[in-house]
Design a protein around this nucleic acid. Structure first.
Length: 184
DNA sequence: CTCTGGATTGAC
DNA sequence: TCAATCCAGAGG
């Protein structure tokens, strides 16, 4: 979790890092295998039109969580990056399940390992992350990211982001090449 | 206050 | 291909 000022670089360095959530039921964790970068100069970003009540965590200190509610039923999880006031973040889009897999299956109401965490709202549901983690410090809390320099032998694929209608030309989606847990 | 659409998912 | 489901953000 060092060097989070450069958002594009951070999105790539987060690949291979571990996302951990310590819950009363036990620890759930996974390896980050897919990310997307968002900045304030980017029309697809929540921060594009400036700070609002929903996106204010994006303008806060790097290394904290930005969690938002969307489509009337889903939550997505971001790692805030960039300088304070910049409005930048990295969306975590997919994990490779590591610990607490039985808990994840229960949370997701599904048994297929490949379908547990291969999407931004799926991994939030699998880990049991809720809105009360919005703004949480990811270095010290029960929700944490550890080991951002794990990507050395893995190959990164660059692609256009999913589900956006603006600035689609930016290749700001990153994932570990051929990893089976990357979203569709 | 009303209206619109969304950084998605799962079923058909 | 499309419904679910509801709130943030924009406009009046």
């Amino acid at each position: 979790m060092d060097d989070l000022n450069n958002t594009l670089l951070s999105a790539q360095k987060l690949l291979g890092a571990q996302l951990i959530y310590d819950t009363p039921e036990g620890r759930v964790s996974g390896i980050i295998v897919e990310t997307e970068a968002y900045t304030a100069e980017d029309a697809a970003s929540h921060s594009f039109k400036g700070q609002t009540e929903r996106n204010k965590m994006m303008f806060g200190p790097a290394g904290h969580a930005y969690i938002y509610f969307t489509y009337g039923m889903h939550y997505c999880f971001n790692v805030v990056t960039g300088l304070v006031g910049a409005g930048e973040a990295v969306l975590i889009r997919a994990l490779e399940p590591l610990e607490g897999i039985e808990i994840m299956k229960r949370n997701r109401k599904r048994d297929d390992l490949l379908q547990l965490t291969n999407g931004p709202a799926k991994l939030v549901q699998a880990l049991g992350i809720t809105k009360d983690q919005n703004g949480a410090d990811l270095r010290t809390g029960k929700l944490r990211v550890e080991g951002t320099s794990a990507m050395q032998n893995n190959q990164i694929t660059y692609a256009s982001r999913i589900g956006i209608k603006q600035d689609t030309h930016r290749l700001w989606r990153f994932y570990i090449t051929q990893n089976p847990y990357v979203s569709k």
